[in-house]
C-alpha cells in the first residue's frame, strides 16, 4: 500500500533540466514556476516566514549551480526541499552565533495560513492553525511534506535528513496530536 505511482512531473523536471543545460534559459523559469510555491509553503511551515522569498531564490540558485551533482535518485522537488531546509538551518545557526533568538513562535506558523478565500470556515481554519502550531518542529516538517506535498516517507526522509521509519512515526504522532488537540 505504500507504493506510489510514478509521476510524469518527475520526467518533466528532468526534461526541463536537460533543456536548461542545453542553453534554454526559459526552462529554468518553468522549473521555478513549478516548484517555488511548494518551497514557499514548506519554508513558511518551518518558520522561515520573514525571508521566504530570499530563501526560495537561494535554493534555486544553489540547485542550478550544482545541478551536475543531482543524480536523480530522488525527485528534483525532494532535492530542492533538502537544499531549502539546509539553508534555513544554516541561517538559524548564523543567527544563533550572533546571539539572537530564533525560536519559532506559534504565531509565525499560524499567520502563514491567512486569507483562505472562504474555502475553509474561519473558525475551523483557526483551529487547524493552532493544532499545527502545537506540533514539534520535526513533526510539523514531516506532516507538511506528507499531507500538503504528498511526499512518500522515503522522500521525506531524504528532505529532512532522517530515516523512513522515523518519518512514518513523526507523521502518525503528528496526526494523533492534531486529533487530540481538536478533540479537547
Amino acid at each position: 500500500m505504500t507504493d506510489v505511482a510514478p509521476t510524469t512531473d518527475e520526467r518533466t523536471d528532468l526534461d526541463l533540466v536537460a533543456r536548461w543545460k542545453a542553453g534554454e534559459q526559459r526552462a529554468a523559469t518553468l522549473l521555478v514556476e513549478r516548484h517555488a510555491s511548494a518551497l514557499a509553503r514548506f519554508l513558511a511551515s518551518i518558520g522561515a516566514r520573514a525571508d521566504v522569498d530570499e530563501v526560495v531564490q537561494d535554493t534555486f540558485v544553489r540547485a542550478f549551480a550544482s545541478i551536475d551533482g543531482f543524480r536523480g535518485d530522488s525527485s528534483l522537488r525532494t532535492w530542492l526541499f533538502t537544499i531549502a531546509r539546509r539553508l534555513v538551518l544554516d541561517r538559524r545557526r548564523a543567527v544563533r552565533r550572533r546571539g539572537e533568538q530564533v525560536e519559532v513562535q506559534e504565531t509565525d506558523v499560524a499567520t502563514e495560513y491567512d486569507a483562505l478565500d472562504g474555502v475553509v470556515a474561519e473558525e475551523t481554519r483557526a483551529r487547524m492553525q493552532q493544532a499545527m502550531a502545537a506540533l514539534t518542529p520535526t513533526q510539523r516538517e514531516v506532516f507538511v511534506l506528507r499531507v500538503s506535498e504528498g511526499m512518500s516517507y522515503r522522500e521525506i526522509a531524504e528532505a529532512v535528513d532522517t530515516t523512513e521509519g522515523a518519518a512514518r512515526v513523526h507523521y502518525h504522532n503528528a496526526m494523533r496530536a492534531i486529533k487530540e488537540f481538536l478533540d479537547d
Partner: peptide
C-alpha cells in the same frame, strides 16, 4: 482534506526575480 486546504496557502514569491537570478549553465 481540511488541513491540506489550510496548508496549501503559500506566501507569495517573485518567480520572475528568482528565475532572473539563475545563471546560464
Amino acid at each position: 482534506r481540511t488541513l491540506h486546504v489550510t496548508m496549501r496557502r503559500a506566501p507569495a514569491v517573485n518567480v520572475d526575480a528568482i528565475a532572473a537570478a539563475i545563471p546560464a549553465y
